[in-house]
Amino acid sequence: MIGVIATMKVKPDQTAPFEAAMRELVAATRANEPGVTTYHFCRSQKEPTTYVVMEMYADQATLDSHMASEWFRNAGPKLMPCLAERPVLEKFDPLEP
């Protein structure tokens, strides 16, 4: 298993289109990627323009497949103009099953 937390800071006037595009990505990921065991889109309670996606992948091949998926690639042009800065991706090794 591989865990990923993607943190994204969004321009204040772009939260609605960002959330809409992310919801499409989440729905496509959940519907088409059985090796993605967790894919949760969340907004910070303290900073309403900061979002995270909490992700768990069966293995590196599953993560690579997600990053190469049509829905992930199509989300980029919708999401990137909404961002205030580059996303931060952090990978984790689970310590329990």
Score class of each variant (00 low, 15 high):
Gln14Trp: 10
Glu33Leu: 02
Leu63Gly: 02
Met22Pro: 10
Pro12Ser: 00
Leu25His: 02
Arg86Thr: 12
Gly3Met: 02
Glu96Met: 15
Asp59Ser: 09
Val26Leu: 00
Gly3Cys: 05
Ala68Gly: 10
Ala68Asp: 09
Phe41Lys: 04
Met80Tyr: 13
Val10Asn: 05
Ala31Glu: 03
Met80Arg: 13
Arg43Ser: 03
Pro77Asp: 00
Lys46Pro: 11
Lys91Pro: 07
Ser44Arg: 03
Phe18Trp: 05
Asn32Arg: 11
Ala16Ile: 08
Pro81Glu: 02
Glu70Asn: 12
Phe18Pro: 03
Tyr39Glu: 05
Gln45Gly: 15
Pro97Val: 10
Gly35Ile: 01
Ile5Ala: 07
Ala68Thr: 01
Leu25Ala: 09
Lys91Val: 11
Ala28Met: 07
Thr7Ser: 03
Thr15Arg: 08
His40Ala: 14
Arg86Pro: 11
Pro87Cys: 01
Ala75Lys: 00
Ser69Pro: 06
Lys46Ala: 15
Thr38Asn: 14
Tyr51Val: 01
Leu63Gln: 08
Lys91Cys: 10
Ser44Gly: 04
Ser44Thr: 05
Pro48Lys: 02
Val88Tyr: 08
His40Met: 14
Gly35Glu: 03
Pro94Ala: 02
Val53Ser: 01
Thr29Gly: 05
Phe18Ser: 02
Thr7Lys: 09
Thr7Gly: 06
Glu55Ser: 04
Thr50Ser: 12
Glu33Phe: 00
Gln45Met: 14
Asp13Ala: 10
Glu96Trp: 15
Leu63Val: 03
